[in-house]
Design a protein around this nucleic acid. Structure first.
Length: 768
DNA sequence: TCATCTCACACGTTTGAAAGGG
DNA sequence: ACCCTTTCAAACGTGTGAGATG
């Protein structure tokens, strides 16, 4: 099982730079130190007082990307009562699920669809009497995780051609969840958000971004339903709960009867003797109506016969079941009953996010790319081939520049320039921390340091990749780069706290840091002169580099994902030799820093449990090794236990979620095994000196390191820089449904089922 | 004692492989 | 040998309720 862990976050691409720097906005007022997400949420106005977000504004010439909540009526029914979502340790799906219809996408461009869930306020709730009431402050925010729709990345045509359901997303209250589920606190209120991001593939994100929030999808998390009306609604609406309906065998009557029988007839284990009245009733109902898929629906007055063939019964059922249900007007215990409000352009900050799905895609893409020294060429071709069966019109030719895309329709100027060159691609975006000419005007090149073999895409670079770049286009030629000046521009995080669901300023696009996920940030224990959002997320190039093992050093800058595959984070079985041998990655490139060969060998690596996770063999770094890391400040944020020196200019508070980050393995500090030819050590004023490091400090899972209450037993030596709130790195986890090495070619990943919707391929597909 | 959480359970749904037929 | 349909077992999703936990 391939497990890829990235630090400290994921940068979707240069559009985030644009978000931060290219949009006019007022200078942020001075502000306290690094508000946490919870702080942000706590400062947010109560939901009931929230004004409906204004109609999203559109950049001139940009076709409006729209998202429509398909099962909005069902959501409203739940919302009227007060939606509760069960969260369990193993993860529980949301019901109702988020099912949306998109419009306004450029059919030729690729997009990734994401779901995240953000706290609505800073309160904890309790169900008292017949209503929910706040009973204190919310608990510390948990790691932000993002669920990527399994179809991602797919062309706009794909997304436009069908409704998009996020029913596979799961919620959990397990803070150390290793399955990649979205971690939430029980008895807290949350708001799901959907994000559309242009992406060349799973490893190259960039371009425009659109975020949507539907107020009716707010929910309260519970471990057991509190409001019986919600239970009733769920049972009535969810096909999986059919058994609990009045005509089901698992309804209370039947259960009681079964229990009685068990008491009197202990041998009747299943309680389904031939005389079982419930069974007979079911038979009577079903036999003459074979076309009915859900007899209970009939009882509710639905007429199924004239309905068209359902392609997704579960989803359609959600809609079908709405009609006969009485509208629940009593919202006394509900949250609120607002008109659905869409809040586009609320930017997702993927810093510290946990990509929860679809690693099989990434792996497939990775596997493809591994066979191609040119980087993404083959992978793109394979993706293209995988799609030719259903979208030949987009495969035969490069996607033409589209006037309908928000990406291309961006006006001239920094945004446009960024768009033109804005796709960080596999080989072209070696870290560049060149400061932007100004905080508000020009794009910030992603790449700093010495000239990479493949240049960073500079704004306006005609050869840079964009969504309009032909999918099989070669990578741009090498070009020189300005020497880096790390993070010399004003931090965007200095913007005031922003409510997650608050509307963007009228007439302005929402700044990325305004999203709550932009502030999963630990309060500082030391004075800081500037405030920043979470550690800069990993950008696409980092992801690509890390997972493109066959790139030779002249083509790819060194990037080595952290070997932090601890079991708390990854519960997947250790690889056996055959699995390893079948995986075409060479191990040093796969996941490990330049350890020696024995260290690099995954096959020889015993499965690590948490107590063993100390990396005793980690070699101390010498100065040259340290300086060779193209670290930016935020990348260093993961070194929380490695930088005990209070004088150390902690990077995470100077970074910016808009920045791409090119990360060494945090907490490891292992230098790359080699550098790019002609590329000397990369000076980084923020990289700690060896004296600042604690090479011998035990390596700990990041969550263990940063999560309050979790690190006490294994706390590394040295003072903690974070007093309470954790800095959560991005982790890319394997799709929990994948149990084998992800060597699937894309044609297996993108398999077209008869009815036209994709299925992600796992060892065994999850139900619908 | 109470609120909350965990787990096993039974039932229904979904899926993919196997079996069978054309 | 190939394709299609049907069958079946397994995995999964669901709410319930008893018991555990703090």
């Amino acid at each position: 099982m391939l497990s890829i862990e990235r630090y400290p976050g994921l940068a979707p691409g240069p559009q985030r730079l644009a978000d931060c720097y290219y949009r006019e906005r007022e200078a942020p007022p001075p502000q306290g130190l690094f508000p946490t997400s919870c702080d942000m949420a706590a400062r947010a106005p109560p939901p009931r007082s929230q004004a409906p977000p204004p109609v999203p504004t559109e950049t001139a010439g940009e076709e409006q990307v729209k998202m429509e909540l398909e099962n909005a009526s069902l959501w409203k029914q739940f919302s009227a009562v007060g939606t509760e979502m069960i969260i369990t340790k193993k993860g529980r799906r949301m019901f109702p699920g988020l099912s949306v219809k998109l419009s306004g996408l450029n059919p030729a461009l690729r997009y990734i669809l994401l779901l995240d869930v953000v706290p609505l306020d800073g309160a904890r709730y309790r169900f008292q009497g017949d209503a929910w009431a706040t009973v204190g402050e919310a608990e510390a925010r948990l790691p932000d995780r993002v669920f990527i729709h399994p179809d991602s990345p797919a062309t706009g045509a794909h997304w436009l051609s069908r409704s998009v359901a996020f029913h596979r997303a799961k919620l959990t209250n397990h803070t150390l969840d290793s399955q990649g589920h979205i971690i939430l606190h029980s008895l807290h209120r949350y708001q799901p958000r959907l994000h559309i991001m242009e992406a060349r593939d799973m490893l190259r994100w960039g371009g425009a971004q659109h975020s949507f929030t539907f107020p009716e999808t707010q929910f309260l998390t519970v471990t057991a339903y509190q409001n019986p009306r919600i239970t009733e609604l769920k049972i009535r609406s969810n096909p999986f709960a059919k058994g609990f309906r009045e005509d089901g065998r698992n309804c209370k009557k039947q259960r009681d009867a079964r229990q009685k029988r068990k008491m009197t007839e202990p041998l009747d284990l299943d309680g389904s003797e031939p005389g079982d009245p419930s069974r007979d009733l079911q038979g009577l109902v079903l036999a003459p109506l074979p076309q009915l898929q859900d007899p209970s629906r009939d009882l509710q007055g639905l007429v199924l016969a004239p309905l068209p063939q359902l392609q997704d019964p579960s989803r359609d059922l959600q809609g079908l079941v709405l009609a006969p249900l009485p509208q629940l007007q009593d919202s006394s215990c509900g949250f609120r009953d607002e008109d659905p409000v869409q809040v586009p352009e609320q930017h997702l900050d993927l810093g510290h996010a946990f990509i929860t799905s679809h690693i099989d895609h990434m792996a497939a893409s990775l596997a493809n790319e591994m066979q191609d020294t040119a980087g993404s060429h083959v992978s793109d071709q394979m993706i293209d081939r995988s799609e030719t069966s259903y979208e030949p019109e987009f495969m035969s030719a490069p996607p033409p520049p589209s006037s309908s895309s928000s990406y291309t329709s961006l006006p001239d100027g920094p945004d446009a320039a960024l768009s033109a060159g804005g796709y960080p691609c596999l080989l072209s975006s070696y870290p560049d921390l060149t400061p932007p000419p100004s905080a508000t005007s020009s794009p910030l090149p992603l790449l700093p340091t010495s000239p990479p073999a493949y240049p960073a895409l500079t704004p306006g670079d005609p050869q840079g990749f964009s969504p309009h770049t032909p999918l099989d286009a070669p990578y741009p030629p090498t070009q020189d780069h300005a020497s880096p000046a790390v993070f010399s521009y004003p931090p965007h995080e200095a913007t005031p706290p922003h409510d997650p669901t608050a509307p963007p300023p009228s007439g302005a696009l929402v700044d990325a840091p305004s999203a709550p996920t932009a502030f999963p940030f630990p309060p500082l224990s030391q004075p800081q002169t500037t405030s920043y959002s979470p550690a800069p997320p990993l950008n696409q190039s980092q992801l690509s580099l890390a997972s493109t093992p066959t790139l030779n050093q002249t083509q790819a800058p060194p990037f080595f994902p952290a070997p932090t595959l601890n079991q708390s984070q990854f519960s997947y079985p250790p690889l056996n030799q055959s699995q390893l041998s079948s995986f075409p990655l060479n191990q040093p490139q796969l996941a490990y820093p330049p350890l020696n060969q024995s260290q690099l060998s995954l096959a020889q690596a015993p499965p690590l449990n948490q107590s063993q996770f100390t990396y005793p063999s980690a070699p101390p770094l010498n100065q040259s090794q340290l300086s060779s890391f193209p670290l930016n400040q935020s990348q260093l944020s993961s070194f929380t236990h490695s930088f005990p020196s209070p004088s150390f200019n902690h990077p995470s508070f100077q970074g910016n979620s808009c920045f791409s980050s090119h990360l060494p393995p945090p907490s490891l500090g292992f230098p790359p095994s080699s550098h790019l030819p002609g590329q000397g050590p990369t000076p980084s004023p923020f990289f700690p000196s060896p004296a600042d490091l604690h090479p011998g400090a035990p390596y700990l899972p990041d969550m263990m390191l940063h999560h309050p209450g979790l690190s006490s037993s294994v706390a590394p030596p040295g003072p903690a820089l974070y007093s309470s709130f954790p800095s959560y790195p991005l982790r890319l986890c394997p799709d929990p449904r994948s149990s084998s090495m992800p060597v699937l070619p894309l044609r297996h990943v993108y398999r077209q089922p008869p009815q036209g919707s994709y299925r992600d391929v796992g060892p065994r597909g999850a139900p619908y």
